[in-house]
């Protein structure tokens, strides 16, 4: 039984024409934990999130999210998830309050419940002061927070965050980490992709490194560091994802020495 796995991916394959992006990805995310998906640019992190969130169709393998198959039961998957993509999915022409209320209506909350939910999220994400202004006038950090707030309107049990802190200043990044921790404390499962290894190290219960269309390592940050005798996830990442460059660099250092 796999009921304790919020995300259960086996042998996932996806290609665009001749170009294979995912070539047998296995990934397991236990319910109520944070997993960080790492990998070099173009490794297929966004494609993986796209498939998990029913936006893209897998070519092969099985993918279950919250116990439902993404191909056979996409509606059930959608009812369980919240997604914050790389491109911010807010309506620029509307105000923060309007954005949240529209999403609340789409979750079929009643008028009063929708209003309360929107107000609570504005409060929680420190957006009350700007709530009545069109989102086009907001800063990047505020838009990102609204994006996440809109993702949480339906109280999803599984949340996918695709590079949630890219472009955020350190303070906003810390605030978002706090939100992620609070969500997990409340029982939510989170899969996030990130370019920041420090983020993965601090936030994630488990890290999965994606390279060449496969997960080349999965474990807790401490496990990965000790398994690869590395002092930081940076070193783990470099060793796992680009051995040719590393050995060339090492060789050239030796030659100079």
């Amino acid at each position: 039984m796999t009921t304790d796995l919020a995300v259960d991916v086996r042998g996932l394959r996806k290609s665009y024409g001749d170009h294979s992006v995912l070539d047998g990805v296995d990934l397991a995310v236990p319910a109520g934990t944070v997993t960080a998906l790492l990998g070099p640019n173009g490794a297929g992190k966004t494609t993986t999130v796209g498939i998990l969130s029913t936006l893209l169709r897998p070519d092969g393998g099985t993918v279950r999210v919250a116990g439902h198959d993404v191909v056979a039961q996409p509606e059930a998957v959608r009812a369980a998830i919240g997604v914050t993509g790389q491109v911010s999915a807010v309506d620029d022409l509307l105000t923060g309050t309007e954005n949240l209320r529209i999403v609340a209506s789409l979750h079929h909350l009643g008028r009063r419940e929708a209003r309360e939910r929107a107000d609570a999220l504005l409060e929680r994400f420190d957006l009350v002061a700007a709530a009545g202004k069109p989102v086009s006038t907001w800063s990047g950090g505020m838009r990102r927070r609204l994006d996440l707030a809109m993702t949480l309107v339906g109280s999803p049990s599984v949340v996918f965050l695709d590079e949630p802190t890219t472009g955020l200043d350190p303070r906003s990044r810390r605030a978002l980490w706090g939100e992620v921790r609070a969500l997990v404390a409340g029982g939510t499962t989170i899969l996030l992709t990130t370019q920041y290894l420090e983020e993965a190290d601090r936030l994630a219960d488990a890290v999965a490194v994606l390279d060449g269309g496969r997960v080349v390592a999965q474990g807790s940050p401490a496990e990965l560091k000790s398994a690869h005798q590395a002092g930081s996830l940076d070193d783990v990442f470099l060793r796992l994802t680009d051995p040719s460059t590393l050995s060339t660099a090492e060789q050239s250092t030796e030659e100079v020495a």
Partner: peptide, 13 residues
Amino acid sequence: TSGIMARFKTMAI
């Protein structure tokens, strides 16, 4: 192009 349609596509609507 803005990503909001992608959001709608991932919702149970």
